[in-house]
Amino acid sequence: MKKVYSTAAEALDGLLHDGMHIAAGGFGLCGIPELLIDAIVASGVKDLTVASNNCGVDGFGLGKLLDTRQIRKMQSSYVGENAEFMRQYLSGELELEFNPQGTLAERMRAGGCGIPGFYTKTGVGTVIAEGKDVRNWGGQDYILEEGIFADLSIVKAWKADDTGNLIFRKTARNFNPPAAMCGKVCVAEVEEIVERGSLDPDHIHLPGIYVHRIIQGQHEKRIEQRTTRKREEA
């Protein structure tokens, strides 16, 4: 059971095909699988459907896969930071399925838990509810949303051991656990692969059962909105 690979390209070997469905972790540019995205760009695989809360920014993160026209459809909640995304969407080259953020997270979680559908009150009475089954419990309407079952999950974590147990750091956890769970195969990139036994079993955020391949690498970790306060305000 060898899970550790030396490069992102090696870790993705045999997993990519045109038209596939990929679930990606990350929120904005925080906790995104930078190295795996670069390797997918280099592979040239195309007609991808990508479930990810955002689509990076121009020229970084999933935005790189837009520049190369490898994405056919995005399943996202917010795509505001990306001019190339808007250009492709408005010209009809790119399909977009808006999901409320919590619905997207739960669709991934549900898919990973073997739940093909669930009812939620999010989006009732809005365009999101159009064409969806409605049921009423206790006087409240709920709409049917479907679990996401992806071909591949790509996620970013802070630390891993060689069995794939993952620990995330601060708000870089975000969509990574649910995205990891919903793929047939999950590849994780981490900042550090530590010796087996050095992670506290009580502190594992995502057990290695969900993680099939791991790579360690250097991350740029770009900041989208740098906001600070002056020292003297302390």
Partner: peptide
Amino acid sequence: LVKGMGGAMDLVAG
């Protein structure tokens, strides 16, 4: 330009 609802629909519903 359509940016998306982010978490707003979930928040107001919940």
